[in-house]
Amino acid sequence: MSRAFCTAGFRTLFVKELMRFWKVSFQTVFAPIVNALLYLVVFAHVLEERVQVYEGVPYRAFLVPGLVMMATLQNAFANSSSSLIQSKMTGNIIFMLLPPLSHVEIFLAYVLAAVARGVIVGGGVLAVTLFLAPVPFMHPLWIITFALGGAAILGAMGLLAGIWADKVDQLAAFQNFVILPFTFLSGVFYSIHSLSATWQLVSRANPFFFMIDGFRYGFFGVSDVDPWSSLAVIVGTFAVLAAVNLTMLRTGYKLRT
C-alpha cells in the first residue's frame, strides 16, 4: 500500500480532489464554519445556565470540541460522497476508470482529500469558536489523532456511499438516516453519563461516540471512555471500511458494468 503514495496517479487524483473543493471553498469550507458558529451561539445561549457536564467546564466550552468534530466528520463525508456521485451522474467518472489507476490509489486519494477538507473545516471552526469559548488543549496529540481518524472514517464512508448510490436522493437518505443520527446521538451536545444505563449501552455501539469522546479528551483531559479504547474502535472501524471499499473498487462494483 505504501507504494501507492508515491505514484503520479495517486498524487494527481488526490490533488484533483483537493482542487475540486478548494475552487468552491465558499460553499465547502466557509459555509460549514458559519454553520457551526450558529450552533455554538444558539445552544450556548439556551443551555449555558442549565447544563454542566464536567466539573469546572462551562457548557459553551464543552460544546466546542463536539462542534469541531461534527464539522470535520460531516465535511469529510460530503467531500468523497459528493465528488463520486457527481462523477457518476455526469459520466466523467470514466476519466478515472480508463487510466491504469489501482484500487488502492483511488481509495487513498479520495479518503485523504476528504480528510484534508474535514480537517480544514474543523480547524476553521476551532479557530473561530476560540473567540467565543476558550478551551484548554491538554493533549494536542490526541486531538490530532482523533481528528484525522474520524475524518478518515467518514471519508471512507463517503466513498462507500458514493459508489453505492445511484441517485443523489439515495445519498441524501444515507446522510439523513445514517450519518446525521449517528453524529447527533454520539454526544456532540451532551456527555453520555447524563443518559440512562440502557442508552449509555446503546451509545457505545456507535463508533461516532468514540471519535467525539476521544477528541474531547484531547482538550479537557476528561472523557467517558479511555482514549486508547476509543482509538482501538476507530482503527477497527476504519479497517473494516477500508476492506469493504477496496473490495468494491477492485471488483468494479457499480462502477464497471
Partner: peptide, 14 residues
Amino acid sequence: RETLVIQSGYFGLR
C-alpha cells in the same frame, strides 16, 4: 488545460 494535465497525471505522466 487542467483537464489534460490531470488526465496525463492519471497515466503517470508529470
